[in-house]
Design a protein around this nucleic acid. Structure first.
Lengths: 228, 228
DNA sequence: CTATGATTCATACGTTCGTTTGAATCATAG
DNA sequence: CTATGATTCAAACGAACGTATGAATCATAG
């Protein structure tokens, strides 16, 4: 009696929408595709969620609520243990991006499907979902940036914010494109099966992110003010 | 005599489509929006391009043809000067990503609009545009990867391919989200106006990419949690 | 000038979209 | 059992979609 058909209509719709939005995007997915895949009546989406937009928000909300709480919990824990001293950058990066990436292995939390949806959505600035994501992320993002400021006091804050941005991009893309865009991965990634590839993605990406975060500061061609 | 057909209608359509696809995505943009913005008749798109899909491909082709030729030219030049010796990683990264980023300042080549469109499209794996991009990119991508293999002989090739992938992501995202996603940039990017911001994005991103590319190799054993 | 092909135009086609409706069915409490 | 509210259902709505058509207009060669 572990996990038998507890799927009610709501969850079947959410699962189908998550998968279809990931594959075809929000605009590219129709309600009839969603209700068809979920084997529910067309009107069920509007009955349970109100609209397609509200469905999209709920798809994100049920995953992001857990993710951001977990990120907060991890950061609280690390800061409590550090007792006021700055955290190591690797700890902070792992708390934010590692927590995200480890969702990929947790099918109960959406697995790779949700991560890819999130990755592609972050570059799709449709107004309503952007506002929603910004609101969901605001608090946890600020906490992690503050932690980075404290961990890297010698780096100008603006630089840290930019590098956080770059790290988000590398991560989104690494997830969204793991097998979507074959541009890069088609060859010379020889003998790793897909679970192996996912397991190894985390340390690979972590190394890259930390290398970028701690890179030498850029030299601007014109000597301008770069205050902290 | 080479007749210069200014073909105002074609270019007005391409410009409008580029801008609208960037803002609302392919599926989220209608033909009527495009022809409305371009101030041309609705039927003009199908007359000049054949279909909406063909229009999308032409939007990319007119920019990518130049970009990839330029990337090839730059790489040829650097390799000729090196006379068989490996290039520096910074040269290679600048040839590929720097050439891309410098398009942002060249309004004649699409400027930031096209770069944002490219950035968001790379995470939108709709079948027809993905196949098209993969084909457009294949040759130049392979050349640059070979150059990196030669420049970093001590790094496993699979590692380099992954890091190329991560660099692409950070770059796409940096462009696509420069003012789209305010998640990160909303605060603490104080007094830089937008041209300043763009000028400084290049060295900032370059430092980050090179730091990531040359980061210590990841440890796959479970003795992880490496130190700062 | 007229003739001819290229382009633009208004209009309409058939389809699919998100949403709504009111009746049918289900679950459960009294 | 009946009553009641929640849910599911088939069907339809108007709007918007990409595309097609044939006439009108334009540019240019003879």
């Amino acid at each position: 009696m572990a996990e038998i058909r507890t799927n009610d209509t709501r969850e079947r719709i959410l699962d189908a929408a998550e998968r279809l939005f990931m594959t075809h995007g929000y605009e590219g997915t129709s309600m009839r595709q969603i209700t068809g895949e979920a084997s529910v009546n067309l009107a069920a989406v509007n009955y349970h969620f109100g609209s397609k937009e509200a469905l999209m928000q709920e798809v994100f909300r049920r995953r992001l609520d857990w993710l951001n709480e977990e990120r907060m919990r991890v950061l609280d824990e690390m800061e409590a243990e550090a007792a006021g001293k700055p955290l190591k950058p690797s700890q902070i990066v792992d708390g934010f991006f590692g927590t995200l990436l480890r969702m990929a292995g947790d099918e109960k939390r959406g697995g790779v499907t949700f991560l890819r949806l999130l990755g592609r959505t972050l570059t799709e600035p449709s107004e309503f979902i952007r506002a929603f994501l910004a609101h969901e992320y605001q608090t946890v993002m600020d906490r992690y940036k503050e932690a980075l400021f404290k961990a890297l006091p010698e780096v100008p804050k603006a630089e840290i914010v930019w590098r956080f941005h770059f790290m988000l991009g590398a991560t989104s893309y690494a997830i969204a494109g793991t097998d979507a865009l074959r541009l890069v991965t088609d060859w010379q990634i020889e003998d790793e099966d897909s679970t192996d590839r996912l397991d190894r993605l985390v340390p690979r990406l972590m190394s890259f992110l930390l290398g970028g975060l701690r890179a030498p500061l850029p030299q601007f061609s014109d000597a301008a003010a770069a205050s902290n």
